[in-house]
């Protein structure tokens, strides 16, 4: 499996990342894509994201390796941005390439669900009046990840 994991402040190009997977000579038949965007809840101005360098990359690597085995992926790209991101900015990109759509789509859900509960990132919300607040973890994210343990929508 071709794996590419990047934590960066810079924006990413979805077109360029897709082209890298589709053009890698891997007999890819489908690419699942998830892109997270900073949502402007409650008048939010921006999110500031921090991570635990080293552990973040290794945890994502582990999640991607599990997805690769379970769904028979040919390639997987995960790019997560850190730093200050305004509302509407892309924040995370997950691309999963497989021979067929079922594996590609399910692997994409698997990777983002586990990333949200296992990869050490933290978000701080910034409001126009200067207030800032660390985001609390949500139980619904734990539940979303846990459904993959219970068999989930796709047995690989």
């Amino acid at each position: 499996m071709q794996v590419d994991i990047r934590i960066q402040e810079e924006a990413f190009s979805v077109d360029a990342e897709i082209a890298r997977l589709a053009g890698a000579g891997l007999d890819v038949g489908g690419i699942g894509l998830f892109m997270g965007v900073v949502r402007g809840d409650m008048g939010l101005a921006a999110l500031a994201l921090e991570h635990y360098p080293g552990m973040t990359e290794s945890m994502i690597g582990r999640i991607v390796a599990q997805a690769g085995t379970r769904f028979g992926l040919l390639a997987c790209t995960v790019i997560h941005r850190v730093g200050r991101l305004p509302v509407g900015a892309p924040i995370v990109l997950v691309l999963c390439a497989a021979a067929h759509r079922g594996a590609a789509l399910d692997a994409t859900g698997f990777v983002i669900d586990w990333l949200k509960t296992q990869a050490p990132f933290w978000k701080r919300e910034e409001y126009p009046n200067g207030e800032a607040r660390w985001v609390a973890a949500r139980e619904s994210d734990e539940a979303a990840a846990a459904r993959w343990d219970a068999g989930g929508p796709a047995e690989a």
């Binding site: 997270g36 973040t56 997560h80 990333l115 949200k116 509960t117 990869a119 933290w122 973890a137």
Partner: peptide
Amino acid sequence: LAFFPPVTGG
């Protein structure tokens, strides 16, 4: 040894 809140990425 690292201490941190529950993670909130993605």
